[in-house]
Nucleic acid binder design. Structure first.
Lengths: 252, 252
DNA sequence: TTCCCCGCTTGATAAAAGTCAAGCGGCCCA
DNA sequence: TGGGCCGCTTGACTTTTATCAAGCGGGGAA
């Protein structure tokens, strides 16, 4: 990693070593209920891959050959919008599965998945997934639960996108990111990671980078949040929450 | 229904007569694969209700006791937004099931379902649903497919809501409604039903009734669409499609 | 039938966001 | 170490949309 960069060789290293039995992330996946023989099936079927930042796990539109399973690292899910632009529609981390939407919908991947950090992502092919679901109803139910949560989240976001002004949408995004990666210091100041460029954030908020830039300045002067290149510091969570309340009831 | 209006009595009539075996809509539901004994289980478990326009099938937030099944009529799904307002997030018709999101997510209903036309909607309680899913993997897979489609649709809508201007969003809404209820005359003119008030349409588009009203006038003068109280006439589908293309590539 | 309420439309004006254009600064590469 | 590219910011201006206020008209109730 240090002296000679060299060519990327085959950047995608295929490892057989890690085992589902020892995987610390598995308990957060839809395979959590598997034990004994069933887990053995999963372990034998999986292929484990190492990814570097920027590497693509799968491309939107491509055929889905199975389900991916994030053991370590974080992943960005992009979707190409009605214009040429890409919009980030989700983030995934250890314990998240990827590609199940394409798998169950029997169509190509609906998003492009790109590694943001170094990590390890396993792959389970269609046949094994099918076998496991037929053997273990709990797996199917776990995916039903997961998809249900996804619909729910997506609909809520959609309604917010339609009815909240930019300022409130931005506050909401910070709150979502907070749940993902907030570190509080002794005064209650939160430091939140911003795993995107401003351009990406603007697209997520449905605005232009220029408008986002101006909004950031407003947030700074109002003392709501202080923006670094790849992080935000929120001095007081309540002040941020007030931004959402204000949008909900302008009279209050 | 004709002479004496009388009081609503118990507006919700519970019928036992109709049978799942003869239901014409069943083949479009997630129960389509059921036969023999399994279908018998469904038939015995179901309760059949008749609804009048405006009647509520279930309320957002209430506990979900099972899954509903639209045999006839059409239903509006509303969700209360971050402000007090209600936003229509979906329409359902014969062959659609309702409440599966709350069922599989193990939470209260995420929307309010309200009948728009007279219709018949059956109800299948939790225990029966659970039994059927465990007996027949095809049912679980059908719901997985359905939820997958829902996530897909919702995400697409979300991205469009974020990145398209009002005009294009309105064109898109008309195209969606077209697939639901378009009648073409001999000149290719489409007549599309608008099952909402202007207020509801405005909320769906993320704008105010005033702005929608102005947009409608623009569409009229541009010859893109002609609006009646509860219907739209689109003289040329291509002209409408151009509205979306124009938003996608402003230079074209 | 008449009146009233409510949903819709219209106009005037204010606020928000987009667009165009330019400049700054960090980072990568030569 | 220098230059250029790219992402971000800023300013000036335009366009879009919201807000406020008022009027119109149909449907239901007295």
């Amino acid at each position: 990693m240090s002296t000679s960069r060299g060519r990327p060789e085959s950047k995608l290293k295929v490892l057989k070593a890690p085992s589902c039995f020892e995987c610390q992330s598995r308990h957060r996946t839809e395979w959590a209920s598997l034990t004994g023989d069933d887990l053995e099936v999963l372990d034998r079927a999986k292929t484990c891959n190492v990814y570097e930042p920027g590497q693509v796990v799968f491309y939107e539109g491509n055929a889905c050959l199975g389900i991916h399973c994030v053991e370590a690292g974080s992943v960005k899910l992009r979707k190409s919008g009605p214009k040429g632009d890409d919009v980030v529609v989700g983030l995934a981390g250890p314990g998240d599965t990827l590609g199940y939407l394409a798998y169950f919908g029997d169509r190509g991947y609906t998003t492009t998945a790109e590694a943001m950090t170094p990590g390890r992502i396993c792959f389970v092919d269609r046949a094994a997934v099918k076998a496991l679901i037929h053997k273990s109803p709990a797996v199917g139910l776990a995916f039903l639960r997961r998809l249900s949560d996804d619909v729910n989240r997506s609909e809520e976001e959609r309604v917010k996108a339609l009815s909240l002004p930019l300022r409130a949408r931005a506050a909401h995004l910070l709150l979502v990111l907070k749940d993902r990666s907030a570190v509080a210091d002794e005064h209650g100041r939160l430091t939140i990671e911003l795993p995107f460029t401003r351009r990406d954030m603007a697209a997520m908020l449905g605005t232009r980078p220029e408008s986002l830039s101006r909004l950031i300045r407003v947030f700074e002067t109002d003392g709501i949040a202080h923006f670094g290149a790849r992080e935000v510091v929120v001095p007081d969570l309540d002040t941020l929450l007030d931004e959402l309340e204000a949008a909900a009831s302008p009279a209050g």
